[in-house]
């Protein structure tokens, strides 16, 4: 660790207790509290969300994200879910082993009766738990922030299904037929929302976002979070938004308004 010179201080206070765990905990606390951490003269890490590690402080040019406006999302409308199923060749039936790359969730505050319905999918986390736990490196995060399963490497261990707090991953337990050429999927692999990576690369919107627009709700904004001129970045700077389970510190790319 290059920041050893600064982080040695806690051990001195402990009087050479030689408890690595205690030290580590203190270090973590220290690191968590710091907004700006000086690694070496002239090199400062700001928030991890803004600066790419090892990039010399350069911001990643692209990080794709979504802003979902729960105020605009209509209860009972499942246009985004159906569009996802159609585009990616998933079944419409809610069978026990049918995949749900995106699903509608309704939350209600029992005390006030306040209720909101909104879609939840893979949150494409910056510090994705699925990537962390994957034993083969099949779960990975692309430079543009999209989290994918490399099914060529996936061994079907399902650690990612367990690790994801958003329940965004699912497992293909049976043979699949009639796949779409742009969405290969097969038995024995984990899968999840791909943010319609092929469409995005072709300059199109993800299927769910396009469907929401077609349905006239305009409840979803897609774009590059790192481009201040993009619609999503502008909107995020204007309205109060949050991420689901922000306390976990996974840094989701999917932001919500009105929940």
């Amino acid at each position: 660790m290059s920041d050893g010179s600064q982080t040695m201080e806690p051990r001195d206070e402990e009087g050479g207790g030689h408890e690595p765990d205690a030290l580590r905990r203190k270090l973590l606390k220290l690191a968590g509290a710091a907004v700006a951490l000086t690694l070496a003269p002239g090199v400062t890490v700001l928030a991890r969300d803004l600066v790419v590690k090892g990039s010399g402080g350069r911001k990643a040019p692209v990080r794709y994200g979504l802003l979902i406006d729960a105020n605009a999302c209509k209860t009972g409308c499942d246009a985004c879910v159906r569009a996802c199923q159609d585009y990616n060749g998933l079944s419409h039936d809610p069978g026990p082993d049918n995949a749900q790359w995106i699903r509608k969730v309704t939350i209600t505050n029992p005390k006030t009766g306040f209720s909101r319905s909104f879609p939840v999918m893979c949150q494409h986390c910056e510090n994705a738990a699925c990537v962390d736990v994957c034993p083969t490196g099949a779960s990975f995060r692309r430079p543009d922030g999209i989290v994918l399963v490399d099914k060529h490497r996936c061994i079907g261990c399902r650690y990612c299904l367990m690790a994801c707090p958003y329940k965004a991953r699912s497992f293909v337990a049976r043979n699949v037929s009639d796949q779409k050429p742009w969405a290969p999927r097969g038995k024995g692999t984990a899968e999840g929302c791909t943010m319609c990576v092929e469409r995005v690369e072709a300059g199109k919107l993800p299927a769910c976002v396009a469907a929401c627009e077609r349905a006239g709700h305009k409840g979803m904004v897609f774009g590059n979070l790192h481009d201040p001129k993009s619609a999503i970045a502008k909107r995020l700077s204007e309205v109060a938004t949050t991420t689901i389970r922000a306390d976990l510190g996974l840094g989701p790319s999917v932001h919500y308004r009105g929940i």
Partner: peptide, 9 residues
Amino acid sequence: FDCHAAVPA
């Protein structure tokens, strides 16, 4: 073709 489509879309 366990995973990939064996016919064009």
